[in-house]
Write a protein that binds this DNA or RNA. Sequence first.
DNA 1: TTGAAAGCGCTAACAT
DNA 2: ATGTTAGCGCTTTCAA
Lengths: 342, 342
Amino acid sequence: MKSHPITIKDIARVLGISPSTVSRALKDHPDISPKTKQLVQTFAEKVNYRPNALALSLRSSKTNTIGIVIPEIVHHFFSTVISGIEDVAYGKGFNAIICQTNENYQREVIDLQALIDNRVDGILVSMSKNTHDFAHFQNVQENGVPMVFFDRICEAISTDRVIADDFEGARIATKHLISKGCKKIMHLSAPQHLLIGKNRKEGFCSAMKEHQLECKEQFIVKCDTRESVFAKEDEILNLAGSIDGIFAVNDSTAIAVMQVLQRNGYNVPKDIAVVGFGDGPIADIAYPPLSTVEQKGYIIGQAAMNLLIGHIEETAIDGEFETKIFTPELVERTSSQLGKTI
Amino acid sequence: MKSHPITIKDIARVLGISPSTVSRALKDHPDISPKTKQLVQTFAEKVNYRPNALALSLRSSKTNTIGIVIPEIVHHFFSTVISGIEDVAYGKGFNAIICQTNENYQREVIDLQALIDNRVDGILVSMSKNTHDFAHFQNVQENGVPMVFFDRICEAISTDRVIADDFEGARIATKHLISKGCKKIMHLSAPQHLLIGKNRKEGFCSAMKEHQLECKEQFIVKCDTRESVFAKEDEILNLAGSIDGIFAVNDSTAIAVMQVLQRNGYNVPKDIAVVGFGDGPIADIAYPPLSTVEQKGYIIGQAAMNLLIGHIEETAIDGEFETKIFTPELVERTSSQLGKTI
DNA sequence: TTGAAAGCGCTAACAT
DNA sequence: ATGTTAGCGCTTTCAA
C-alpha cells in the first residue's frame, strides 16, 4: 500500500498533457477548455487525487495551521478553551498543533521554536507558571508570527490578550456572600506572585471594603489545593468559630474546606456559607452543591482564535492590540445560603 | 518584522559559497573543511538560522507530526490520554495535531483526510459514537499511514489497538460490592450498542453469576448521565428498597444516584453501597467519597503512541497488529462500605 | 573540498 | 487553450 500518493505530474503523464494544465483544470481556471477540465477532474476524482498540503504550504508560505501552547491539557478550564479554539479553527479551515508545556519553561521555549519552524500561521499561548524570561515570545514576534495570549498572559509582551476578569469575579463572589448576610469572611488564597492569586484576593478585599467590612490578613489563609486545605486544617478550624463565610480561590479548595468543616461539626451553609471560583464540573457534584463563579473557557477560546484570525488575515491593524476581558458569572447553588439547613 | 526568514541560500550568498556547502557544513558533513564548517556554523548561529521544516518534510516525506482524532477534548479521560500521547511524542520529537470530532461522523471523515493531506507520519484515533461506516479508516490505511485506535476502537479495521478492559473493570467493581456483603445489586447501564455499555454490563453479570447471584433485567436501569438519573428517579426509588448495592457505568451517574438516594432517606453506604467506573477526579470529591475503578488514561495514551512509533519507525512488523489491554484498578473509598454509617 | 543540477509537488508568470 | 520555466527551501548525486 505504500505506493506513493498520486501527484499532478502523474495525472499529466497519464493524460498526456502538461502539469500546469492539470493544475489549472483542477482549480477551474477560465483559460482551460471545458473538455480538458472535465477530463482532468473526472480522472482526478477517479484516482482519488489529493493535493499535497506540504507542497502548497511551502509555495504559499501559508500552512493553515495554528499552534497552541498550554501548560496542561488535563484541566477543565484549559481543555474547554482548547475546545473553543478548535471549533472556530475548524470553521475557518485551520488545523491546530497543541503543545503541552507541563509548566516547564524550557519546554515552552522549545515548543514555540518548533511551531515557528513548522511555519504555523499563528500561535495562541497561555504562559507557564515558571516562565520569567520572555525572549522566546519576542522571538515569535520577530519572526512575524501573529500571537495571542489567553488566560496566563505575559504583561511584558504587547499582543492581543484574552482573559477572565479575576478581580471582578472575586468581587462578585464576595458580594454574593455579603448579600446572603455574611460579615466575617475568610479567603483561601493562591500565591500572590500568580496573577490569579493576586487579582482574586484584591477583588475579595475590594468587595469587603465597599461594604465597610474588614479584610483582615488573619482571615486570609494561603491554600489553593485540596491537599493544602487538609494540611492547614488546624489553622482553618481555629478561625472557623469566628467566621460566617468563606470565599475560596478555586472550587476544589472550596469543596475541601466544606468537607473539613462538616467533619468537625459545622454545617454548610447554615453556620458558614461557601463560594468557590469556577474551575470545572465538580461544583455541581459537591455536597452541598457549590455556589461559584464560572469562567467562560469556551468563549475565551473562541475569542482568542478570532483575534488571531484577525491578524493572520490582516483584517486587524498591525501593531494595534486588543485585550478582551470576560467577566465570570455567578452560579448560585446551595453552599452559599447562609442560615439554611440542608 | 515580516522580513522573510533566513534561508541556506541567503547564507551562501553572504558567505560567497554555494548552498550545498552550507547545507553540508550545517550538518557536519565529513567532506567539508573545518574552516568552512566553523565559518558557516558561526554565521548561522549569529543570524539565528532555522531550517524550514516544511521544505524538509516535502523533501523527506517525513513530517515528524502525528494526528490525534478524538470525540471530545473536554473529558477527563480523553484529555488524560492526550497528555500521555503528548509526553511520549515530545520525547521522540513529534508534534501532535489534535482534531476534535464532537462525535460527528462527517467531521471525523474530514479530519482524517486533512491529516492525510498534511502528510502526518501516523494517526491515533478514538472513534466517534456516530460512526458506522468505516471507509475513511480504510482510506488512511490505503494511503499507507500508520494508525492506532485507542479506547473507542473500530473492530472492522485491523490495526493496533489500545483499550481499557471494561469487562474486567466491571467485574472488579461488582466483586468488590459482593465482598462487602452486597447480594442484590442494581446496575445503571449505558446503551448496549456502545461497547462500554455492553462490556460493563456483561462484566457485571459475569461477576454476579460467578457468585451465584441473580443478574435480573429488572435491576438493570438504563441511565448513564447525571440527568438521566434524575429523569429515572422514580424507577430507581421503586427498586431502592429491595437492593443493597449499585454498580454504575460511570462516576457521574454513581454520584447522582447517591444524591437521589440520600435525598430520599437512604444512607450510603450503610443501606446501599455504591461503586462507579472511573472517569475523573470527581470521585474523591463526592459525598461520601466514591469507590470506583480507575481507567489508566495516561498509560493508554503512552502505549498508543509507542505502538504508533513502532509502525512509523518500522520496528513493528508490517501487517502484524497488537491489542494492548489495560485493566482498571479498584480505588476503594467510603461509598462501598456497606453497613457503615457516615 | 566544493559546486552545479535536479527534484520533492505545486503554481504562476511568461511564452506560444 | 496549453506548454515551458522557474522557484518555494532543502538535500544529494554527480562532476570537478
